[in-house]
Design a protein around this nucleic acid. Structure first.
Length: 427
RNA sequence: GGAGAGGUGCUGGAGUGGUCGAACAGGGCUGCCUGCUAAGCAGUUGUCCAGGGUAAACCUGGACCGGGGGUUCGAAUCCCCCCCUCUCCGCCA
């Protein structure tokens, strides 16, 4: 949600930002409804003030024993009450429409974000590591995995459907090792680990911005108010929703493991092979809550935390700032980490780190009390993958594959795998 | 699943249908006192929305006592529905 003051006093700036985003958000409709709402509200409040004065008088008249006058006043107030109810119903309708409109307007991009229509306008900030070279044709994980006997799409399709996977044996252990490795790494850097519900309600999804615009991407538990989490960002960021934090308690840096569930509506035909795009995948998520003054420093730290995971694993990657046309709904600034995948011969997203500034905080009423006193302020929320576990497993398989189809386990993971150094093809 | 208790401000905790935005206590803040700290004394201290004013302060009005309806001239207070927490019983990992 944007600040009302912003779109009221500076609609042109908002309009320009929406254009940069290639957004067709109904700003003009919002401005119109807002104006009418304020007009009706002023009228309603004036009448209510009159009624409040009248009611108080009635009480006094009764106390003074002037019953006749009181009864007459009651009749007048009753008529007034009917008018108020009528006008108020109108104001409520306008207020609801306004709230709905506000919820579908995306965040404004930060001034540092490159302006452009899509991912071609993204800006590469830096690269780390050298993509490995092979003296053979590197294979994709969807060949390597089944060859190692650790990855099984057929049986997943049998028990669930397309876009699911079964990990066998060392594959399952590797997945779990990656999760633990990542959580340990972040915990060691001052993050507090949290374990959160894997289902969330509509209110939480509204808080982080998945609802109402992206409801079709979610798995809904029929007959309930519950949805499977599409990312730990939702339960973790909403932990303090509606609360007032002390400034001294900021920044908060949290990490959480959850599976993530996405309906992937509208992505038919994209990344149909392999583990890249699944209905269910594991992720370790990082969430920072910070003061506005610090939030961009926190974005750097958050990104660095995600990068460290890849560095420790020895995976080459690059950091990209998303352009205005490629950013997510709630973000003001997003840096993606893209890991090199030899099987695909390209960099693929493995982490997305965003500063949402006060956009989510306004939706979930997450505020802090400044240390020196003064008015409550909105917290800035940040989130990022630290990192996507399934895609990391892909990266490990593809980057450390050997000519014989075996895969060398990165040293950082060996303590989590009983010292195993290499996965070898089965029989 | 069954029975009961309860949800009030930053916290604890009162509250008779009408000067209740809410007693009291704690905490915070500001003064005073004090060699320092603690204690003590006095005062002060909610949020959101609209309008006015504006550098800010502030002023006027409205709303808010878990959420939503209802009764009433008027609801924290009465009625209905829902949610959540706690206790006991049952069940279960």
């Amino acid at each position: 949600m944007l600040a009302r003051e912003l779109y009221r006093t500076n609609p042109d700036r908002v309009r320009a930002a929406l254009a940069d985003r290639r957004s067709d958000a109904p700003l003009d409709r919002l401005l119109e409804v807002d104006a009418r709402w304020r007009q009706v509200l002023a009228e309603v409040e004036g009448l209510k003030a009159e009624r409040n004065r009248g009611s108080k008088q009635i009480g006094q008249l009764f106390a003074a024993g002037r019953r006749d006058e009181a009864d007459a006043a009651k009749a007048r107030m009753s008529a007034l009450g009917a008018r108020i109810a009528e006008l108020e119903a109108g104001a409520a309708r306008l207020g609801e429409e306004m709230a709905e409109l506000e919820l579908v307007i995306p965040n404004l991009p930060h001034e540092s974000v490159p302006v452009g229509p899509d991912e071609t306008a993204n800006r590469v900030e830096r690269t780390w590591g050298e993509p490995p070279t092979f003296d053979f044709e590197p294979r994709a994980h969807w060949d390597l995995g089944p060859g190692l006997g650790i990855l099984d799409f057929e049986r997943a399709a049998k028990v669930a459907g397309a876009r699911f996977a079964v990990l066998w044996g060392m594959g399952a252990a590797l997945e779990r090792a990656l999760v633990t490795f990542m959580l340990d790494l972040h915990r060691g850097r001052g993050y507090e680990e949290v374990y959160v519900p894997f289902v969330v309600n509509r209110q939480a999804l509204r808080g982080t911005g998945q609802i109402p615009k992206f409801e079709q991407d979610l798995f809904h538990l029929e007959g309930t108010d519950y949805y499977l989490v599409p990312t730990a960002e939702v339960p973790v960021t909403n932990l303090y929703a509606g609360e007032i934090l002390e400034e001294a308690a900021l920044p908060k840096r949290l990490c959480a493991y959850t599976p993530c569930f996405r309906a992937e509506a509208g992505s038919h035909g994209r990344d149909v092979r392999g583990l890249i795009r699944q209905h269910q995948f594991d992720k370790v998520e990082l969430v920072h809550l910070a003061t506005p003054e610090r939030s961009y420093e926190e974005l750097e730290m958050l990104t660095a935390s995600a990068e460290l995971v890849l560095q420790r694993l020895g995976l080459a990657y690059r950091v990209v700032t998303l352009s205005t046309g490629d950013m997510g709904f709630a973000a003001a600034c997003t840096r993606d980490l893209e890991v090199w995948l030899p099987g695909q011969g390209c960099y693929r997203e493995i982490s997305s780190c965003s500063n949402c500034e006060d956009f989510q905080a306004r939706r979930m009423e997450l505020r802090f009390r400044p240390t020196g006193g003064g008015k409550l302020r909105l917290v800035h929320t940040l989130n990022g993958s630290g990192v996507a576990v399934g895609r990391t497993l892909i990266a490990v398989l593809e980057n450390f594959q050997q000519v014989d189809g075996s895969v060398v386990i990165p040293e950082a993971l060996r303590p989590y795998l009983d010292g195993v150094e290499r996965l070898t093809p089965r029989g």
